[in-house]
């Protein structure tokens, strides 16, 4: 692999690395229960939870590692962790 001067890299190039493949448990979001507080989005260490056009939240499963923080911290218990089927 050729090194760039100063070992510089393109900003955000880590997105090439799809960490969703690490997942053992998958967070499933129940939009009916969601109060749109945004806590899940704030606390996800991946920053992979996004607000959709209806103002509710969903993770980007390409990157979600399935850590379960969002499910543990959701004040409405709107997120449940389900074992991945591979």
């Amino acid at each position: 692999m050729a090194l760039a001067v100063g070992c510089r890299a393109r900003p955000g190039k880590s997105r090439d690395n799809k960490t969703g493949s690490w997942r053992v448990f998958k967070p499933i979001f129940d939009h009916e229960k969601c109060s749109k507080c945004g806590m899940c989005r704030t606390l996800c260490p991946e920053g992979c939870i996004h607000e959709n056009t209806e103002g509710v939240f969903d993770p980007d499963y390409a990157f979600c590692k399935g850590c379960g923080i969002c499910a543990a911290e959701c004040p409405k218990a709107a997120i449940t962790m389900k074992q991945e089927e591979k």
Binding site: G12, S14, R15, N17, E46, G47, C48, G66, G68
Partner: peptide, 29 residues
């Protein structure tokens, strides 16, 4: 309303352990 992406300045695809507190601190900072 446009979708707001949260991973603006510290992006996805990093290799911290799932649930890493340090990774969350990088996002928040």
């Amino acid at each position: 309303m446009a979708e707001k992406k949260t991973c603006d300045l510290f992006d996805c695809g990093h290799r911290a352990c799932g649930g890493c507190g340090a990774a969350l601190s990088a996002r928040l900072v």
